[in-house]
């Protein structure tokens, strides 16, 4: 049963998932037995001892010490078992093998970015199959939570310090990463994928995605657009999300909430990146973070402007 998917749990795809599932199903089965027993007794009593006359006055029942002792002892033993079992799997979930491959994770409203040891950065997580991977995670703003249902791992991601999860994927496939801690407007759009690849495919992918300095500014801008998660709010295809689309942005006239307007040129775009609260386009809320003046280099911002110009 452990290796199977059921209506309860999705197909397990990591080494720890099987252990978590075994415990889950154990509790589920024991709970079902207990539940059926208690409800069975309830229905049986309600039927067997139903009131037959207005004047029924049953005699008090003497309490049965053996029954009482058993219903104290049996649940106690059961919870002791599941506690110890849960504790052992918890340690397994918490302690990464020392040879784990480390990837840095940054969470922000409302996207993920993954940085690999060779300098590659991606918005989807790529990992090699059958190899322990340890994620070192931090947040740029509020609390997020990294959750891969198929791996049965989850940890909150906090600002100002690191938290970790580790897993060893066992199936080559693509799985969902979701944010499990409520983080505001687009919380439910904070997706990424985990792409589990063979070791060779993974290394090829890494090499392709390494930044070797040969990119044009616009290509570099596109990479930053991906890495910084701009796509979470600014689409490239004209759909409106939390922020305006980049499609056809340059050269268009922007109407602001204070009644003024301006034509979007290079300088406007630059200002909108480094000081987003200065002018708010009508129909949008001032939700864009103001940190990019410090977290992006001047070159990065130039590259982004070049990228947006091309849209």
């Amino acid at each position: 049963m452990n290796e199977q998917a059921s209506i309860w749990l999705p197909e397990p795809a990591s080494t720890v998932a099987g252990d978590v599932d075994a415990l889950f199903y154990f509790i589920l089965i024991v709970s079902t037995i207990l539940f059926v027993g208690v409800m069975g007794a309830m229905v049986a009593f309600a039927w067997r001892y139903r009131r037959r006359s207005e004047n029924d006055r049953p005699e008090p029942v003497r309490e049965n010490k053996l029954v009482e002792a058993s219903w104290i002892a049996i649940p106690s033993i059961l919870v002791a078992i599941v506690f110890i079992w849960g504790f052992r799997v918890f340690l397994e979930l918490g302690i990464a093998p020392p040879n784990a491959y480390e990837i840095n994770v940054t969470a922000r409203k409302w996207s993920w970015s993954f940085a690999y040891p060779n300098g590659a950065v991606s918005t989807d997580l790529h990992v090699p199959v059958n190899r322990p991977v340890k994620l070192r995670m931090s947040s740029e703003d509020v609390v997020h939570s990294f959750f891969v249902p198929a791996f049965r791992v989850k940890a909150d991601v906090l600002q100002g310090r690191y938290s970790y999860v580790w897993f060893e994927a066992t199936k080559r496939d693509t799985f969902n990463v979701v944010c499990a801690e409520y983080c505001g407007t687009a919380h439910s759009d904070m997706y990424a994928s985990v792409v589990v690849q063979s070791q060779d495919d993974f290394e090829n992918w890494l090499a392709e995605n390494m930044d070797d300095g040969s990119l044009t500014p616009a290509q570099r801008g596109e990479r930053i657009y991906q890495q910084q998660g701009c796509f979470a709010c600014h689409s490239l295809d004209g759909t409106t999300s939390a922020g305006p689309t980049f499609l056809g942005l340059v050269g268009s006239t922007r109407n602001f909430t204070d009644g003024t307007n301006a034509v979007a040129d290079d300088n406007y775009i630059r200002t909108a990146i480094v000081n987003p609260a200065q002018e708010i386009v009508e129909g949008f809320l001032p939700v864009m973070p103001g940190q990019y003046a410090t977290t992006l280099s001047a070159e990065d911002i130039d590259a982004l402007v070049a990228f947006i110009q091309e849209q």
């Binding site: 978590v20 509790i27 709970s31 599941v82 849960g86 504790f87 979930l93 939570s145 791992v153 989850k154």
Partner: peptide, 19 residues
């Protein structure tokens, strides 16, 4: 109550938490 036991178990709660 029984599902409370489920989410009170450390390893299982890691998966079930905030779902």
């Amino acid at each position: 109550g029984l599902t409370g036991i489920m989410v009170g178990v450390l390893a299982v709660d890691v998966h079930l938490h905030d779902t």
